[in-house]
Write a protein that binds this DNA or RNA. Structure first.
Length: 573
DNA sequence: GCCGTTTTCGGCCCGACTGTTTTCAGTCG
């Protein structure tokens, strides 16, 4: 197998790092994990960097890891990884999937109980063979059985869009308690990652016991995993884990910074802190020599003391934001209230459930000043796609509606299929009547990279196309992106002034954050659309803005910040 | 394994909770 993507290369480095962690080789492990993370967020194809011989200029990549990357690109394999895999007794990594089982215990269980799988371990625990081991006991044995049950039930990660209402309810519950002065969810939720593994609830309180008690008494709590005065963990129904930390109000900023992460961001920050003579933890920034508290109330003062500008949570992934903040050159990220329109919306003319008028009313209620109606085109028969005739009829309905609306505009659009030969599903004579054309691929996902890339490029060369819809076709945790040479696509998009969509549908979020940044760096403008098929789905727009922000986009990089009049002139640059 | 305003060696982020341990190791985030 010849490796093709940055993700493949990163996966090898991650696995090496993970195995080194098990072997307690902490620092080498960290080196590999950090390098893996850097490759993941690289906005350029790592093969290109390799061809230029500049692998070791990637931060965190030195001679040795550069050699591993080269080997992986050339052969698809890594000797280092293979040797490490072989050095590990079978079953160890599987056991570590269990909550509460780390490297030490996994190794001992495999070694002393001769188990090589979770199934084996379950049998041993049920036969009470675990409790007799030194350092284990009845309680640990019970916890192992519970962890095995959780493991079999658990959903890997939750979609951000599915988590939003859960968080709203949780915060409302906590804020009702007089012991709770402030409450917020930090972690990957606050950074707006596309999926969330668990929630990190942060509570400011002068009465930690009462605040913690309030937390574990929350209605949707299914099981309390741990319950201390400042730190508790529960599982909600649906097996969503929530960690709660209670801190004194004067340390809220420090705690918020600390628990927002990401881990890599924090490690880097603390390393810089150490070099400057500080110690940073969830209670504040302290001077090392005398342990004097220097900053803790707000995130701003902590970053400032470390010589940096405050940075939006969406940027905190150790993707260069710390360097940018130190040099005072952080981008001014696009804001939700700069978004004037939704650029991808269906109606009952195709597979949507709402009339165009309902769409307009909803968009106006959301604070927008225009919306583009983009129903499917004819070849998507299953979605009642529009042919030339129905599209014309729809246009008349929109004209009539616009005559009635005041201070709001419905734009005529289409989500036009890109056919397998790269041509459009509707003739130019139809497309040129429209204000905004989104062109999407809905078939042939198994074609090779060359074919798919050519197909998309030829669509962009149609002068009536304004944007490419859900450019990679991925469905989070369900369907991989179809093979595509994004670099070539972005190059063409920039040259043609065609926008790339950020599809805000929770399962799509396509382009993703890293690709957005890559597109922006190539000079491409992004087009945010909800792809709503029902009225409440139009509320997904903030998810699209989150992706844009995670991709370092400013208002000029986002087509939606334009007025309707400027939007339809997108192709003129 | 990587890195450098403590530089080519010697560091590498920090604290809470649990279970088992009589003083702490393991795990997690």
């Amino acid at each position: 197998m010849i490796v093709s993507s940055n993700a493949d290369v990163a996966a090898v480095l991650y696995e090496i790092g993970e195995i080194l962690t098990i072997k307690d080789d902490r620092f080498r492990s960290r080196a590999y994990l950090l390098a893996a993370q850097r490759i993941t967020s690289l906005t350029e194809d790592v093969k290109k960097v390799k061809e230029r011989g500049e692998l070791d200029q990637i931060p965190g990549v030195g001679k040795s890891i550069a050699a591993t990357i080269t080997e992986v690109i050339d052969t698809g394999e890594s000797k280092v990884l293979e040797e490490l895999r072989e050095s590990l007794p079978p079953g160890v990594r599987q056991l570590m999937e269990l909550e509460g089982i780390g490297p030490k215990n996994a190794m001992r269980l495999v070694d002393e109980l001769k188990v090589s799988s979770i199934d084996d371990l379950e049998k041993a625990a049920k036969e009470e063979r675990v409790r007799v081991l030194k350092g284990f006991g009845e309680k640990k044995e019970q916890n192992i059985l519970q962890s095995i049950e959780d493991y079999r039930n658990r959903q890997t990660r939750f979609l951000l869009g599915a988590i939003l209402p859960v968080v709203d309810d949780m915060l409302a519950w906590m804020r009702e308690s007089p012991a709770v002065l402030r409450a917020e969810v930090a972690g990957s939720y606050r950074r707006r990652r596309e999926t969330i593994g668990d929630l990190d609830l942060l509570v400011a309180s002068d009465d930690p016991d009462a605040a913690s008690a309030r937390f574990v008494a929350m209605p949707p709590v299914e099981r309390v995993v741990s319950h201390g005065s400042t730190k508790s963990t529960v599982f909600l129904r649906g097996h969503l884990q929530v960690d709660c930390r209670v801190i004194p109000p004067e340390a809220y900023g420090a705690a918020l910074q600390y628990f927002t992460g990401s881990k890599d961001h924090n490690v880097k920050l603390r390393t810089i802190g150490v070099k400057a003579g500080y110690k940073l933890n969830e209670y504040g920034l302290f001077r090392r020599e005398d342990d004097k508290l220097v900053a803790s109330e707000t995130e701003e003062e902590i970053y400032k003391t470390l010589g940096m500008d405050w940075m939006p949570p969406e940027l905190r992934e150790n993707r260069g934001e710390i360097e940018a903040a130190t040099e005072h050159r952080l981008p001014k990220l696009v804001e939700l209230d700069e978004i004037r329109g939704d650029l991808h919306c269906h109606s009952s003319w195709s597979e949507g459930t709402m009339t165009i008028e309902e769409v307009a009313e909803k968009a106006r209620a959301l604070g927008l000043s225009y919306v583009v109606i983009t129903d499917h085109s004819k070849s998507l028969g299953i979605a009642r796609g529009l042919d030339e005739k129905r599209l014309r009829e729809q246009g008349k309905e929109i004209d009539a509606l616009n005559r009635r609306l005041r201070g709001f505009t419905v734009l005529k659009g289409i989500e036009c299929d890109i056919k397998s030969d790269g041509s459009m599903d509707l003739p130019d004579s139809s497309l040129e009547e429209l204000d905004y054309v989104v062109a999407s691929i809905h078939s042939g996902f198994k074609n090779d990279e060359e074919t798919m890339t050519n197909r998309m490029v030829s669509a962009m060369r149609n002068e009536h196309v304004h944007a490419i819809g859900h450019p990679t076709g991925r469905i989070i945790q369900k369907r991989k992106p179809y093979p595509l040479n994004l670099e070539r696509v972005f190059e063409e998009a920039a040259a043609q002034h065609v926008a790339m969509e950020i599809n805000a549908f929770p399962e799509r979020l396509d382009l993703d954050d890293v690709s957005c940044r890559q597109a922006m760096e190539a000079g491409v403008v992004m087009s945010i659309g909800t792809d709503a098929h029902a009225l409440n789905q139009m509320e997904f727009l903030p998810l699209g803005v989150s992706v844009a922000r995670r991709g370092w986009l400013t208002s000029k990089d986002v087509a939606n910040t334009r007025t309707a009049k400027d939007l339809v002139r997108l192709r003129r640059g």
